[in-house]
Structures are given as C-alpha cells and as structure tokens.
C-alpha cells in the first residue's frame, strides 16, 4: 500500500478512474505534458495519451462549456482550473448550464463532469492564487461541492465525484497537498458523497471545518484534550448537499459548536451551518455557535496572509468562549 500525500492521492484517483472508465477525459491548462501546475496530473498523458489527457487553450469559460458538451454526450470530463482565482470566468457555464442541464431538460441531458481546482491560501502564492470562495458554489442548486482534507479522502472522494452522474466542483486544499502522508490502498473504492466525516469523537464541543483548516482544528482538539476537554471534529467534506444528520447528532451530544473556515466570514458556508443549528438544533445548544473564519477582506498577499488565516489560537479562544457557557 503506497504512502502518499493528498496531491499524490488525487493523481492516484485520476489514474484509477481513467483505467476503469474510458469515458473519463482529463483536460485543462497544462495538465498534459507538464502534468499540471501542481503535478496532480503527472504521468497521465504518458499512460493514457493526448486524446484523453488534453492540454487546452487558456480558456476557462470555453473549456468549462466544452466539458458541459462532452458530459452531455456521456463522457466524464475531469476539468482542472489551475487556481480558484481563475475560476470565475467558468461560473457562467457552471451556474447556467452544468448545474441545471438535467433540470432544464427534465433528465434528457445530464452533466456528469468534475471541475477540480486547488483553493485556499497559506502557500505564499501571488495575488489571485489564494481565494476560498467555496460558498459561492455551495449557493448553486444542482451542484455538489466536495472538499477533501486527507490523502484517503482525496482518493475516495475524487473517485466518487467522477462516478457521480451529476456535476461536482472538487476543491483541493493546496496548503495541505504535501502536509500529511497516509497509506492509501489503490482499490478504486469511492467514499460516500453527501456525508460528513467525524474525524475525532468527543463529548464536550463540536468543531466543524473542511479543507486545510482540518490541520489547525485537529491541533485545537489536541490542545483542548490537554485541558480535559473532549472535542469532536467534523470534516464536512461535501458542503452541498449538506449532511445535517451528522452535524445535528454531534451537537445534540456536545451542546457546543465552533465552525472554522478560511473563507471570509460574511456569506461564508459557516453561516449556513450556524443557521441550520439555529433553526433546527437550538434546543440542543448550551452556548452560541461561534465562527472562526477569514476576515471580510480581500485575502492579503503573502506579507499579511498569516494574519488573515484562522490560527490555532483563534480556534482555541473561540472554543474556550463557547465552553464558558454553562
């Protein structure tokens, strides 16, 4: 069983999907000969050829629309957009077509495509390379937004996204592309979509997060354990459709909840989770739900970036505030 990091797990899943299904076409800017700017598609063109691993012109809207056409013709395009900051020209195609083709034709045409993009800050990248705008996609009906946070989940969730008969935006937390190595069995087994993962069980407080913030959140749970606080950590993994069952049953148990995300606070997906808890889980709560998020600013360039990112200290402060309510 190979020990791989999150990026290698993405590559493994792409390779496995291309092996098992001829309809899988990997395309995007620099995904072929160059193996992708992060090397997520490394080796694919050598193995599967330039027909199925396609270097495209620099054309985010065009290649997203092209993927809609390919998917409607029963192919399984897996499209890479190099950075989340360059995804916006593609949004017209995603919101107007990919996410609604099935609905607007009452199931006659469908759009089984995956749009992969690395997202998030913390790697000292240039301007426009560090955004976390997952909530924009989570607001689009008919679309799944999936974010892995470990090599195993990257492998299993990407396979699930490719197998899924509907469009998936698959956002890869690039800050943790190389942070953790795991033994990932290359067995082609998909993990379930539309499910949160309980990464750590606990009884005193629920910490909810996704993507790269898993690292600080798990560290927060470790610190809390030293104080004798048992924290449950939930990786949302599929933002939409949201698995509220897992979230509610955790908060029913703990009565306290902190939501951590890197994206800006206002309109962030943490607000949606907090609203669901306020609507349907209020009586389980012993304390207000707190959010630890990026600020409502443009994500700063590297000189100030570390001030923006939610830190372990901010997570601990929020958790301790929530724990003070009796």
């Amino acid at each position: 069983m190979p020990e791989v990091d999150l990026l290698q797990a993405v590559n493994m899943a792409l390779t496995k999907a291309m092996e098992t299904d001829d309809r899988v076409i990997v395309l995007g800017e620099d995904v072929g000969v160059d193996g992708g700017v992060f090397r997520a598609t490394n080796g694919l063109i050598e193995r599967f050829g330039a027909e199925r691993v396609r270097d495209t012109p620099l054309s985010e809207a065009g290649i997203t629309g092209l993927s809609v056409g390919l998917a409607a013709q029963d192919f399984r395009p897996v499209l890479e957009i190099q950075f989340m900051g360059f995804i916006y020209p593609a949004i017209d195609q995603i919101i107007n077509h990919a996410s609604r083709l099935r609905n607007r034709t009452r199931g006659r045409l469908t759009c089984p495509m995956v749009l992969r993009a690395p997202f998030g800050g913390g790697i000292h990248a240039p301007e426009h390379h560090s955004e976390s705008t997952e909530a924009m996609f989570a607001h689009i009906p008919g679309l799944r937004v999936v974010i892995p946070s470990s090599p195993k989940r990257a492998y299993g969730l990407l396979l699930a996204a490719i197998e899924n008969p509907d469009p998936v935006v698959f956002l890869e937390p690039k800050r943790i592309y190389h942070v953790q190595k795991e033994n990932v069995e290359d067995d082609g087994k998909a993990l379930p979509l539309d499910r949160c993962f309980v990464l750590r069980e606990g009884s005193d407080i629920t910490l909810i997060t996704w993507g790269a913030m898993i690292v600080e959140t798990l560290a927060g749970a470790d610190q809390l354990a030293e104080d004798g606080v048992s924290a449950e950590v939930i990786d949302v993994a599929t933002l939409t459709p949201l698995d509220t069952d897992t979230i509610f049953s955790s908060v029913e148990k703990t009565g306290r909840c902190v939501i951590v995300h890197e994206a800006a606070r206002t309109g962030g997906f943490g607000g949606e989770i907090a609203a669901r808890l306020a609507e349907d889980g209020l009586l389980s709560l012993l304390a207000p739900v707190k959010r630890v998020t990026g600020y409502d600013t443009v994500i700063p360039m590297p000189r100030l970036e570390h001030h923006y990112m939610p830190s372990l200290d901010r997570i601990l402060t929020a958790a301790r505030e929530v724990l003070e309510y009796s």
Partner: peptide, 22 residues
C-alpha cells in the same frame, strides 16, 4: 441529443465544441 434553447447569449458555443469533441 439536441440541446435546449440557450438563453444566456453565446453560452451555447462552447457546448458545441464539447459535443463535437465527443
């Protein structure tokens, strides 16, 4: 296999390239 009418102007052109690639 025909597409429905495209309302957002011009958004149908890229779909045609995908259908043609298929």
């Amino acid at each position: 296999e025909d597409f429905p009418a495209a309302i957002p102007v011009g958004s149908q052109f890229p779909h045609a390239t995908g259908v043609a690639l298929a």
